[in-house]
């Protein structure tokens, strides 16, 4: 998004908000619905802890830090990434993608400008509430570094989840039915990152660190936010640097989308 691009982004986003406000009841109901659905999840976490006490070394307030940060981040990505998340159904199936190609602006800008989904406020506010409760309960005296790492977690997680949406959009150039497989990564990833990665099996952790860098943008930086020692033995330096794999993952997804996906479309049509 160079210079003028950002201006157009705001114009498109404002237009999408105006559109959404045409359906106020739908907006309110879907926001409330999402709030309720995600609130059930945290109720599940709470039930688990009240029955079993701690989860290995982790107490509920610590888990809520993981839970809150990943949900806030995912809600933000979900709100800004709708154009990619629903790309197959909205653009490929309908042939509307042709129209994007007919306009003298980048495809990425047009798709990220598709919608800012206000209804994601449901998950966002729920995640924020859990995060706030965690911060208050843990009584951490936050250093500047810890606050910084909290921002790093959110920003790099947003990059990572956007990357997943863009990867999903890339696949839908071939088949719109790939959505379910990708959902196991997006929604499955959120579920998984709600708990500290250390509780999972080694092979599982390695996949979500080295293949799909989910742990790099959730588990490791959150350890730094909590200011505790990693049971897995990682250093602070590692925890500070690995979140960079989030933006890297996003970059790779964008390149794949443009170079492989869009090129495939323009050579085959829909």
């Amino acid at each position: 998004m160079r210079g003028h691009g950002l201006g157009l982004y705001w114009r498109l986003i404002l237009a999408s908000m105006t559109s959404q406000m045409q359906y106020k009841a739908s907006f309110i109901l879907s926001s409330l619905g999402q709030f309720a659905a995600t609130a059930v999840e945290i109720a599940g976490v709470w039930a688990l802890f009240s029955r079993f006490g701690n989860l290995e070394h982790w107490n509920i307030a610590e888990v809520c830090m993981f839970y809150g940060l990943v949900n806030v981040s995912f809600a933000i990505s979900d709100a800004i990434g709708t154009g990619f998340d629903q790309f197959g159904a909205l653009y490929v199936k309908t042939g509307h993608f042709d129209r994007l190609l007919l306009r003298p602006r980048s495809i990425f800008l047009q798709l990220i400008g598709h919608e800012f989904a206000l209804r994601r406020v449901g998950r966002f506010s729920q995640g924020l509430a859990v995060l706030a409760w965690s911060i208050v309960t843990l009584e951490i005296d936050f250093t500047a570094y810890q606050v910084f790492m909290m921002l790093v977690t959110i920003v790099t997680s947003v990059c990572f989840f956007l990357g997943l949406f863009i990867l999903q959009a890339t696949l839908s150039f071939w088949s719109v039915e790939t959505l379910e497989i990708m959902n196991t990564l997006t929604y499955g990833g959120v579920e998984c990152a709600q708990y500290p990665m250390a509780i999972y099996e080694g092979w599982f952790r390695r996949i979500f660190t080295f293949v799909i860098p989910l742990a790099c943008i959730s588990y490791f930086p959150v350890i730094a936010v909590l200011g505790i020692d990693d049971p897995l033995g990682s250093s602070r330096l590692f925890q500070t640097l690995v979140p960079l794999s989030g933006p890297l993952f996003l970059g790779i997804s964008i390149v794949l989308f443009q170079r492989v996906g869009v090129r495939h479309y323009t050579s085959t049509g829909s």
Partner: peptide
């Protein structure tokens, strides 16, 4: 067959 206008605006 298809419009290029924004449906709800």
């Amino acid at each position: 067959q298809r419009t290029q206008l924004w449906w709800d605006l």
